[in-house]
Amino acid sequence: MIEVKGLVKCYGQFMAVDNLSFQIPTGCVFGFVGPNGAGKTTTMRIMAGLLRQTAGEVLYDGREMTSDRKFLKETVGYMPDFFGVYDNLKVKEYMDFFAGTYFIPVGERKALIDNLLQLVDLEEKKDFYVDALSRGMKQRLCLARSLIHDPELLILDEPASGLDPRARVEMKEILKTLGDMGKTILISSHILPELSEMCTQIGIIDKGRMQIQGSVADIMRQLTKKRVFHVKVLDETDVAAARAREFASVKHVIEAEREIQFDFDGTEQERAAILASMVRAGVPVIDFREQEGNLEEIFMTITGGGQTNA
């Protein structure tokens, strides 16, 4: 478990991070969302040991990370929002160089590098020069580089920024794999719908403060003023609508062709009861689902209509 407690970072009079607190459970893919200047990168740089905080602490399983440089470097893999490459260096040499910076024994490097390149789907490019790779490939290489010392926590600052849709999908798949491998991942992005698909939890930060934190569904539930349900039926649309209207928590039932839609402000038990009532009445229900909220909308609501690119 990572706990950020009362983190403060001041630049003179300007407070970039203002008493920020949040938790990331072990193995969680945590999405860090916020408008420009919200303090995301500053927080990530503090967690990666690239900035000293003015106050507060970052605990990893109860151990303060930022004051224990050795522990921090072993625990954290950091990928900045840009990727630096060296001229005249091949992919495998680039990886070997960073393996050297973590003092990984020479004998272990080849297998490790091959595995990591395979993970990011670059094993066929290992003899290519780094500067000849596409942006997406460089980004994946940078991710492989951040994994070279097998860190438990990955801090990825906008890993999908500037990538084309295909490269984004590839990056998303790799991150999912890493999540499945049990890595704790802190990821920031301005592509909010992607975060909702990728992250088990998100935290929305604005003006250096955490505005809300939780699973995407929980946040939706907390912030969406009305929950809208869609019920698709094969027949008996009117019966389905009538059954729904019997519940006090159901408002504004709209009937369409083999589908009804209604607003709902009840509990999960009531939600189950509505479905059960329809089924008991013989309505052939083929779909009963809550309309997905729009993460962008929520983001705008929380951050007071700030910019959506973090």
Binding site: L50, G84, T101
Partner: peptide, 16 residues
Amino acid sequence: GERERQTLDILLTTKM
């Protein structure tokens, strides 16, 4: 040069 290539931060997060 490391700064210009944006590799200094990465180097500083390593064990060096």
